[in-house]
């Protein structure tokens, strides 16, 4: 009985050691590399325009047709919750696009087919600015970007943010704009996440010398126990004989 306890005791302590080994198996610190922050929103914006964009715009367009208000709530982007969020969210990416990337925005605008509404809403200065680009989609897009730019930087602040706010609840242009921001533009650059996540330490993969040592200890203990058992059996046989 006692030797058995010895063996199990050894095994138990070995297991304890092994557990400790697991616990202390800390990973090396991760290199502190935040990937270069890419600010351009050209890619995401243009991506937004391919594939499903047309479907999305279809939705919005039809919603608008049915009733301005419904389209707003139906599209789901302009609940109070999202409004708050969105005003944060839009800013960076649109800022980016205001930073000179007009093409993708133009795509969005045309896709969304809200151009007529928008065209009149964007302020004249903006309109003419981009007039070189000629199509109304362009105009719309700039309305977009300038409006967000407004919220977050004074660079394009000349076109009254008040104007935008007042009209956004009133008709589809406003809701459409919010949709656009929620659909096309997620936090990017400075506000969105960048780089990889650090969601693993490799504790389950890294070779664990403590555990290996513990295993070796257990094996050694079993060897000793086995030898002892054999010896005892041998001597017992002897005694009986």
């Amino acid at each position: 009985m006692r030797p058995v306890r010895l063996v199990t005791g050894t095994a138990a302590s070995a297991l304890t050691i092994a557990t400790l080994g697991f616990l202390t198996a800390c990973p090396a610190a991760y290199a502190d590399e935040a990937g270069a922050q890419r600010i351009s929103s050209a890619d995401p914006a243009s991506r937004a325009t391919d594939g499903l964009a047309s479907r999305a715009t279809g939705d919005e367009a039809s919603g608008d047709g049915a009733s301005g208000d419904e389209s707003g709530s139906g599209s789901g982007a302009d609940t109070p919750f999202s409004l708050d969020n969105l005003s944060n969210l839009i800013a960076p990416s649109l800022l980016d696009s205001a930073g000179g990337i007009t093409a993708p925005g133009g795509d969005e605008g045309t896709n969304r087919s809200e151009d007529p509404g928008r065209g009149e809403k964007t302020d004249p200065g903006e309109g003419t600015d981009r007039g070189e680009k000629t199509d109304q989609g362009e105009g719309t897009d700039l309305g977009d970007s300038s409006s967000s730019g407004r919220e977050n930087s004074s660079s394009s602040g000349h076109d009254s943010s008040g104007g935008r706010e007042s009209r956004s609840p009133s008709e589809e242009g406003g809701s459409g704009k919010q949709d656009g921001s929620s659909s096309g533009n997620r936090p990017e650059g400075p506000d969105g996440p960048t780089g990889h996540v650090k969601t693993g330490v490799g504790g389950s993969v890294r070779p664990d010398t403590t555990q290996i040592a513990a295993g070796a200890g257990v094996l050694a203990a079993t060897a000793v126990g086995g030898a002892w058992l054999l010896r005892r059996r041998a001597s017992g046989t002897q005694g009986a004989g």
Partner: peptide, 24 residues
């Protein structure tokens, strides 16, 4: 004796498992 023998076998397996697990 037999039970002790089995116990040893189990312990040995545990040891092997530990080593293998430790190797990852």
């Amino acid at each position: 004796e037999k039970a002790k023998g089995w116990l040893l076998v189990v312990a040995a397996l545990a040891g092997v498992w530990l080593i293998r697990n430790g190797a990852g």
